[in-house]
Simulated scan of single mutants.
Amino acid sequence: MNGRECRDEVCVTCSDAAVPVTVLRLLDGGMALVDTGSGPEEVSVALVEARPGDTVLVHAGEAIAVTGRRP
């Protein structure tokens, strides 16, 4: 969990619910920096074809679907 503790009711990396986030930039190793609405966080995008600006659905630190594309 990147050395951080979850302080919100919903945490992108450890919640039981999938959360929509916006991809800020792609990183090496199938990872991406995303905007969670509470700040930036690194998540895996290895299972989806995400691009910067896309909205992806994240569960347990893994993007599981692209739900919106930036035009």
Rank of each mutant, 00 (worst) to 15 (best):
C11F: 06
T67R: 09
A46L: 05
G29D: 00
S44D: 07
T22S: 15
A63H: 02
A65C: 02
E62I: 12
A60F: 01
G68F: 14
T13K: 04
A60K: 09
E41N: 07
T13E: 10
P40R: 06
L33K: 13
R4K: 15
D54R: 12
G37F: 13
E49D: 15
G39V: 14
G61H: 01
V58I: 09
G37M: 03
R25I: 04
V43W: 10
A60P: 00
V48S: 10
T22G: 14
S44T: 13
A17N: 00
H59Y: 09
A60I: 00
R69H: 12
V10T: 04
G3L: 15
V45G: 10
G68I: 04
L47Y: 13
N2W: 08
V66G: 09
R51W: 06
E5G: 15
P71R: 13
S44L: 03
T67K: 14
C6Y: 00
T55D: 08
D8W: 01
A18I: 01
D35T: 08
V10A: 01
A32D: 11
V58T: 02
R4I: 09
L57W: 12
R51C: 10
V48F: 11
M31T: 00
G3C: 04
P20Q: 12
L27S: 02
V45E: 04
G68M: 14
A63W: 06
V19E: 08
A46H: 03
T36E: 09
P52K: 05
A65I: 08
S44F: 07
L26F: 03
T36V: 02
L24W: 00
I64M: 11
S38W: 07
I64E: 10
I64K: 06
D8M: 05
A32F: 08
A63Y: 03
S44Y: 06
V58R: 02
G29A: 01
G37V: 07
R70S: 14
G53V: 05
E62A: 07
G29L: 00
E41V: 13
C14M: 07
D28Y: 04
G68E: 15
R70M: 12
V12P: 06
V43T: 03
V56Y: 02
V45D: 06
A50V: 11
V56D: 04
C11G: 02
C11R: 00
G30S: 13
E9N: 07
G3K: 15
T67H: 14
G37W: 04
G30Q: 11
R51L: 12
D28K: 09
S38V: 04
R25Q: 07
C6G: 08
T36I: 03
A63S: 07
L33G: 06
D28R: 10
L47K: 13
A65D: 15
V10C: 01
P20Y: 14
E62G: 00
S38Y: 06
V12T: 09
L47V: 05
V56K: 02
A17K: 07
C14G: 12
E49F: 06
